[in-house]
Design a protein around this nucleic acid. Sequence first.
DNA 1: TCGAAAATGAGAATCATTCTTGATCCAGCG
DNA 2: CGCTGGATCAAGAATGATTCTCATTTTCGA
Lengths: 145, 145
Amino acid sequence: MQRNILRQVEHRLRDRGLRLTDARRAVVERLGDADGPRSAAELSADLDGEVPLSSLYRSLSVLEEAGVLAPHHGVRGLTRYELAEWLVGHHHHLVCTHCGLVEDVPIPTDLEARLDTLIGAVAGAAGFSPSDHALEIEGRCERCR
Amino acid sequence: MQRNILRQVEHRLRDRGLRLTDARRAVVERLGDADGPRSAAELSADLDGEVPLSSLYRSLSVLEEAGVLAPHHGVRGLTRYELAEWLVGHHHHLVCTHCGLVEDVPIPTDLEARLDTLIGAVAGAAGFSPSDHALEIEGRCERCR
DNA sequence: TCGAAAATGAGAATCATTCTTGATCCAGCG
DNA sequence: CGCTGGATCAAGAATGATTCTCATTTTCGA
């Protein structure tokens, strides 16, 4: 992952009187290397239990609160997190209906622009003020094909 | 809701050796009248506790298994269900980031067509076989504006 | 009408997540 | 240098949604 990200995160936390501690840095690093959202349990395994689960959850919610992480709610009450879009850019998700894998995928800017226009129209008509959107493409991944 | 739906559901269940019992009918009726996905707890309240929670959960998973309901995973480990698209047509969701309300919204067919094309291209490039997609528009609803 | 399969209800059990409590760390200050 | 308060941490209890168990009941077809 780009070391740049850690600097941005540290700065953002500092702005809010928070610190970039070891646990938080570890979480950001793992998510920066991942190719999709990760759950607390997955991160804990990645970290080989170096961070107690309770602390890990707390780190995740602090980072979410600070806008560093974005939550992603998937199957069976599992919440997975990923780095917020201001850190890694706008993207969408491919979700494998068979194995549950979630993978990031970028979308060409021209389509994204059209999507934005459409969303504005649809939401406005319903009295909604759209602030963001998420497109999930479901299907079978390469391995589960 | 259209009575038609109940007939289709009954037929589909029958095909799989399942019955359209009182509890299942009640669930389908409530969801048919709702303007968005509903959780087990919300349905239980709607039904004034006529159906025990354990039975309600079972009904929901049987109906999901049979392809009658589609699950929708929202914040805080809440799973909400709605009638599957073959019963009520393709649509997307407006999600209020403030109060959590989820509302159905139809999308003009021309945009939907463009979306499909795009999705095919993006997914194909990543080795995915897309079978479905979900677009969630986040923002503030009329009341939380 | 009988028997097998399907369905039910009540409560216990599970699992991810959150809360509570008390200890620890650290930057800035005197 | 040592104190002080906010920030952080660890450990376990608590919570809340969901699933499981099991004994009982209902339903459908032969």
